[in-house]
């Protein structure tokens, strides 16, 4: 039964792995994968020898780490509360509405956010002004930029991720609730002892799988919102690779960075897999 997937993966995923050789080359496209000049780890050192390398990697980790954590918590909690809505019609209605922002591309959303967050007449600052607060330059202030990235990302994506938790909720057997009721458990206790444990497994799975993106902080979003004012807090691996690529189409560096990201993800995934196995006795895959 595994055969078709294995064969297709071999052709379309494993075969291209040969291209990882580019990471160790001064790659000229026309020379083919194996006839280029080998440069060892030059492409990697180019990335790490930048004076701002640490800052860029740290930004990436913080932004994407927070996105993963809140990207789990928010849909999880939202699904729990949505589950408590008694009217099925209203439930579906809300579920559909929160799904909408997923379809707006960042090219459009970027412009809207710049307007909403503007320190001169933006919606948010006008609202803050009612409370006598001074306007804040949200997208030009290193203290605010990362939180803004997280919040706007969550707003756009949480409706989509909620679907997984809703599906898992459906998988919890009703008999468990019936039995709990017989034992005299109230609603809160039922949620605490049945619903949440029932969702735990899938939460761990989604969380661990999300680690494969730990060094992808969300290029489209950041690219459309960042600016020189917030390079300190907003420049991430992908934006820097993009700027390098724009300048010189440097394939070697791009591939090296990709490989580095994969390695970090792989190590984290293996670690998380072992932890889940040992402490939760749950084999994710």
């Amino acid at each position: 039964m595994l055969l078709p997937a294995v064969l297709l993966a071999l052709v379309f995923n494993y075969l291209p792995f040969a291209g990882l050789a580019i990471a160790f080359q001064d790659f000229k496209p026309w020379k083919g994968l194996f006839d280029n000049t080998w440069v060892g780890f030059d492409n990697f050192s180019e990335m790490f020898s930048r004076p701002d390398a640490l800052q860029v990697i740290l930004n990436t980790l913080v932004i994407s780490g927070l996105k993963i954590v809140f990207g789990l918590i928010v849909p999880f909690v939202f699904a729990l509360f949505l589950n408590e809505v008694l009217s099925r019609g209203l439930q579906r209605f809300i579920q559909t509405l929160v799904f909408l922002p997923y379809f707006i591309s960042w090219v459009i959303l970027g412009g809207i956010m710049i307007d909403i967050l503007s320190p001169s007449g933006g919606l948010l600052n006008n609202a803050l002004g009612v409370f006598g607060l001074k306007p804040i330059f949200f997208l030009g202030d290193n203290n605010w930029f990362q939180p803004m990235l997280i919040v706007t990302h969550l707003w756009k994506e949480f409706g989509y991720s909620t679907v997984i938790f809703l599906a898992a909720l459906m998988g919890i057997s009703p008999q468990l609730y019936e039995a709990a009721e017989v034992d005299g458990a109230n609603r809160v206790q039922q949620v605490w002892h049945i619903t949440i444990p029932g969702l735990l497994a899938i939460t761990i799975v989604v969380g661990v799988l999300a680690l494969s993106n730990i060094l992808n902080a969300g290029f489209d979003q950041i690219f459309n919102l960042y600016n020189p004012m917030v390079y300190q807090s907003g420049d991430v691996i992908d934006t820097f690779v993009y700027r390098v690529g724009l300048l010189s189409g440097n394939f070697g560096l791009g591939t090296a960075v990709g490989l580095f990201k994969s390695l970090v993800s792989m190590i984290l995934i293996i670690g998380a897999y072992k932890l889940a196995d040992r402490f939760a006795h749950y084999r994710i895959f």
Binding site: D52, Y231, Q232, F240, L247, S248
Partner: peptide, 17 residues
């Protein structure tokens, strides 16, 4: 330029801002 150009430009834009 291929190796350092991007960083130099970032340094410049950052400083100017």
């Amino acid at each position: 330029m291929s190796k350092k150009g991007e960083y130099l430009r970032k340094l410049e834009q950052d400083t100017f801002a």
